[in-house]
Every structure is written in C-alpha cells, then in structure tokens.
Simulated assay, not measured.
Amino acid sequence: MTLFSTAHIARGSRGRGRSHMIPIMLACALTTCAIALVAYLLWPTWGPGASSSPARLPVSVGATLFNVPTAAIRMKIQRHSGPQERVDLNFAFPSLEAPDAPMHVSADAVEEAVQPIDRIFLSISAHHDTLAPDTRVRTIYPRYLEQASTPGQDGLAMRAFRDGTPYSNEDLFFASAPNLSARCTRDAATPGMCLSERRIDGADLTFRFPRSWLAQWRDVANAMDRLTAQLRGPKA
C-alpha cells in the first residue's frame, strides 16, 4: 500500500510539473515572436535599392524655398522636407550630379597621400540679416588686402591679404565675366581651399572647392551659377 501511494504521488508531481511548464513555454514562444517582429520592423532598410526616399526634397531655408537632391545632402539629420536652419550638400564636379556614396577617406590613405577632391561643397544657411557677401567683398575685404593686384590667367585677378590680418595666408580672386569672387587659403601641408558666397533672398549659399580648380575658373563659376538655378524652388 505504501509503495502504491508513493508511485501515485510521484506521477501526480510529474503531471503538475508538466502543467506548469506549458504556460512557461507559451510565454517564451510569444516573447520570441515579439522580438522577431520588433527586429523586423527596426531592421535597417538603407541598403542599395532599398531606400524609398524621394529623389528631391522641398526645403525652406531663411523662408526661401530650395528643391534639393536627397542624395546630395551630407547629413542624415537634414534629409527631410520643410523649414531648416542649414543644409549641407555636395555635388560631383564637373557633372554636378549628386554623389552615389559619401566621401570616406581612411587614416592610412591620408598618411600615404593627399586624396584628390572631386566634389564641390555647398552650405545653404539662413543669414538673419547679417552683412551680405557682396557687401563684404566691397567694403570689408579691401581694408585687409595688399594694394597691388596680380593678373591671373584668362582674366582672373588676385589680391593677397596682408599678414597679421584676420585673413592672413589667404588670397582674394575675382573676375567679372563670368562673375566670380572667391577667398582662398594658400597651399601648405594640405591643399588650399576656396570659399565663394552669394545671397538668395533669406539664405546665403557658401560654395567650397579646391584652389587648384581656379585653373579652370570659368567652369567653376558657371557650375555655381547652374547649381544656384537648379536648387531654386518654384517662385510664387
């Protein structure tokens, strides 16, 4: 009788154990399914051909409308339509197409040799009624420039900024046909870069490109004009 009672108790314990395991197994299964669903929904979708972003975005900077290529926007946080304080873009030169991939240079490559730049960079920012770029060229820069100008090739002239001024180690290049004004750093350990600005309504456009491109300065000036026209949104 004792043996029968012991066996009966053991079978009852195993039965209760199995009955307790069923809810636990169901809970684990539901948890696994939930994790898989969340992972699927959050899995990155920016691989080749996976993006559903529009080719161009209407962006308002300084209450001025621009129609910018999505692929040309350098910062992901800026890839949205609507008002923005600033948008940073880059375009292949001379095609002016939006680049296929961001420009990455490894530390080893930098140490081995200076990588050539094949893009023109453009920042569009709200100016908030600061001094206009053309006014700065006419009234501010002359205070810091050397008196003599140096004739350049193909109608491009240059005046150097004096040492000890806020723009020392820079030069001002200018031409009138087509119109170009660019402030450029001088070649040193790194190649010199040029900055050219223009104002469109409530926004300032700042172009940056290598100083070496001034050998084809007409192409650069025309490229900036073309980009400005292409990016302007429809006028009211």
Rank of each mutant, 00 (worst) to 15 (best):
R138S: 08
A177S: 15
T45D: 12
D187E: 07
A221L: 11
G47Q: 08
A182N: 00
L30A: 15
W46Y: 09
R198Y: 08
I9T: 11
E146G: 05
D154M: 09
W213S: 01
R143C: 00
G62D: 02
A92F: 04
A157L: 10
A113K: 10
G164T: 06
G82F: 06
P210W: 03
P151E: 05
E85S: 11
I35L: 05
V61H: 01
T190K: 09
G62F: 01
I24Y: 08
W43I: 03
R14T: 09
M1V: 15
D118M: 04
T228C: 02
F91M: 04
A27Q: 07
P142A: 13
D201Y: 00
R119M: 11
V87S: 01
G12L: 12
M1I: 14
M25K: 04
P94W: 04
S123D: 12
T228M: 02
L156S: 06
V110Q: 08
A203S: 03
T31N: 10
R119T: 13
E146F: 08
S125Q: 14
D187T: 08
V105M: 10
M158H: 00
G202E: 03
D154I: 07
L180Y: 06
F4W: 15
D163V: 14
R56M: 11
S106K: 12
S60V: 12
R211T: 15
E170S: 06
A223Q: 02
H8I: 13
P94Q: 08
S52F: 09
E112H: 10
T32M: 11
E112K: 13
I77A: 15
F121E: 15
L89M: 05
N222E: 12
D154G: 10
H104E: 10
R208W: 04
R226S: 06
S196T: 13
V137F: 02
P102H: 13
L3Q: 13
G15D: 12
F66V: 00
P54C: 07
V87H: 00
L214N: 04
S212W: 00
P102G: 13
R136Y: 01
R211C: 14
G47S: 08
S125F: 13
L26A: 04
Q230A: 12
F4Q: 15
L65Q: 14
P102W: 10
Y167D: 00
G62C: 00
S123M: 10
S60W: 05
F207D: 04
L30I: 12
R159W: 02
Y141S: 03
L42T: 15
R86A: 06
L37C: 03
P58R: 02
L26M: 03
P44N: 07
L156H: 03
T190G: 03
R232T: 09
H20W: 08
L42N: 15
A72I: 03
S168R: 11
D129G: 09
R74H: 09
L172N: 02
P99H: 10
C194S: 05
L231V: 13
T150C: 06
M25D: 01
A148Y: 05
P54K: 08
L145R: 00
A177M: 15
G12E: 07
N67Y: 13
Q147L: 09
R198E: 12
